[in-house]
Write a protein that binds this DNA or RNA. Structure first.
Length: 270
DNA sequence: ACCCTCCTGTCA
DNA sequence: TGACAGGAGGGT
């Protein structure tokens, strides 16, 4: 499910449940998952749960005989979910890829499409992405201008790449461009100072708004422990092809850019 | 800067 | 049956 607001939501929910807990053992059910380093996890305490870009990061204490801290990262990709509960058996293991048994309860990693990853790192530095987090102080209007400068790439696909800004995905890229009044097909480097100012402001505004609503949830099923966002009720254009634009009432248009859907209003977005 | 692919599921 | 799905890494 996750773009930045969804991952932030997951992290906030996991914090009170995981911080202070101790890892007892870890079981991997998907042979495709990276298992390097997982033998070093048992016996460590979860010191903090944080978001790094679109990844969920568990900061782990040292353990007996090994004083060095570790960082356990989950990248949820398209369908990954992290849920606390009890480790399942038999039929209930459908889509369950890993189970981390804690001193109280378990952390379950589900992932229907199996694109998700988990990673054990030995330094905080390694966990840092190259892109800037758009909610951090490092992300200024000037920085956005710097990053887009000279780029011939269309602005919507540009927003999706993670090597400059981390955290935006397909939903929020469309929503942000609508809120900014910018046509998704515009070349990133062609945006005026005024347009960049609007884009910068709307990136932060839409992400904050979505976090306030606990993100967007499209799945029809939700479990009691899992997250249920409500931002889908506030979407202006995403997956609203043919429906009236909330500003001008003309139909929302659906196009494909680099094999990914984009939704926008040709009248409001120039 | 683009295309494909990695997976599994749902919907028209 | 084919298109599409909240992502991104690898190859060209």
């Amino acid at each position: 499910m996750p773009e930045l607001p969804e991952v932030e939501t997951i992290v906030r929910q996991l914090q009170p449940e995981l911080e202070g807990r101790k890892i007892v053992s870890i079981e991997i059910f998907d042979p495709k998952l990276e298992t390097r380093g997982i033998s070093k996890l048992p016996g460590r305490k979860i010191l903090a749960v944080t978001r790094i870009g679109k990844q969920v990061c568990l900061e782990l204490s040292g353990r007996e005989g090994d004083n060095k801290k570790l960082w356990l990262l989950f990248h949820l990709r398209m369908t990954g979910r992290l849920i606390t509960g009890r480790c399942k058996t038999g039929q209930n293991r459908k889509h369950l890829r890993a189970c981390i048994l804690l001193d109280r309860g378990s952390l379950l990693f589900y992932d229907m499409r199996r694109f998700g990853r988990l990673l054990v790192l030995g330094s905080f530095q390694e966990a840092q992405p190259e892109g800037i987090d758009p909610l951090s102080g490092r992300f200024t209007g000037r920085k956005l201008a710097e990053l887009t400068s000279g780029s011939a790439q269309e602005i919507k696909p540009w927003l999706l790449r993670q090597d400059r800004l981390v955290g935006l995905g397909n939903i929020y890229a469309s929503e942000i461009l609508f809120a900014s009044g910018i046509d998704p097909r515009r070349q990133a480097g062609s945006l005026t100072t005024e347009e960049l100012r609007r884009l910068h402001r709307q990136i932060r505004r839409i992400l904050q708004l979505a976090i306030g609503k606990c993100g967007t949830t499209f799945s029809n099923f939700q479990d009691s422990r899992g997250r249920t966002g409500s931002f889908q009720r506030f979407l202006s254009v995403y997956r609203k092809a043919g429906q009236p634009c909330p500003r001008c009432s003309r139909p929302v248009q659906w196009i494909v850019q680099q094999r990914r859907s984009t939704f926008f209003c040709p009248a409001c977005q120039k």
